[in-house]
């Protein structure tokens, strides 16, 4: 169990300190006084557990492969952006683009997410315990986006093959979206995922798996087809 204090240190020094603890075999690291600073705990390629006590700024836990970065406050733009594998957990809320372009792993936000959660995700899981903002799931290519609360406007716009689930209301669906019936496998997946990633105190206030809506791509924007000209004009 190691500690890294942020005060008086540059971001580079903080991240070097985290990594030197990991190299020294200490895989439980607590980062104190983060003060909302950017790029904390980025590019950790080992299965270490980094707890950031407080709030983090932009790109927290980004470019990770196998690490767990847990933020007890809130996180700014680009939480866990381009993560290959690993877990990012935020107890508070997340800024724009949480889990943007992740290829795998899990991005868990207990509170709300601002705009564009899971934008262009290429795999993995983005789980928002609260509400999500404008254009969540935009251009999602693979993986699952779960929103336990309400979703904002233009939800799941222009997706490829990300599967989205919303527990609350959807302010507006994006282009080329289809609401599909939940299969028993979906319900099982939702219940298991919520149980695995959300603490009981939070989970008990959320809908159960069978009460989610499932949103997938209508696949009409995947390839241009003359008979879909109208939907292309609207989308662009």
């Amino acid at each position: 169990m190691a500690e890294v204090t942020c005060e008086g240190r540059s971001i580079r020094e903080i991240n070097v300190a985290i990594k030197s603890h990991i190299r020294g075999g200490d895989n439980e690291i607590t980062v104190r006084n983060p003060g909302g600073r950017h790029n904390l705990g980025v590019a950790i390629l080992e299965p270490a557990h980094v707890t950031i006590e407080g709030s983090a700024g932009y790109y927290c836990g980004a470019l990770a492969d196998g690490s767990t970065v847990e933020v007890t406050g809130s996180a700014g733009w680009g939480l866990a952006e381009s993560m290959l594998n690993g877990t990012a957990i935020v107890h508070g809320s997340a800024g724009n683009g949480a889990g943007a372009a992740i290829r795998g792993g899990a991005v868990i936000v207990y509170g709300d997410a601002a705009a564009r959660a899971g934008v262009s995700m290429k795999g993995g899981l983005v789980l928002i315990g609260g509400d999500c903002g404008y254009m969540a799931g935009f251009m999602g290519q693979k993986g699952a986006l779960i929103v336990c609360g309400d979703a904002g406007d233009a939800f799941a716009d222009s997706m490829y093959a990300t599967v989205c689930y919303v527990g609350g209301k959807i302010a507006g669906l994006g282009n080329d979206t289809v609401i599909e019936a939940l299969s028993s496998a979906d319900v099982e997946f939702l219940d298991a995922t919520l149980e695995r990633y959300l603490p009981f105190e939070i989970r008990k206030t959320k809908p159960s798996g069978k009460n989610f809506k499932k949103i997938v791509s209508g696949r009409r924007l995947w390839n241009f087809n003359q008979r879909d000209r109208k939907i292309w004009q609207e989308a662009l």
């Binding site: 809130s74 601002a114 903002g133 406007d153």
Partner: peptide, 22 residues
């Protein structure tokens, strides 16, 4: 614009949230 501005000016235990569209 960034949480770092609030944290560096005001100490204490409070939650910060990004505003949504509109």
């Amino acid at each position: 614009t960034e949480e770092v501005a609030i944290r560096s000016a005001v100490s204490g235990n409070y939650a910060v949230r990004e505003a949504q569209a509109k």
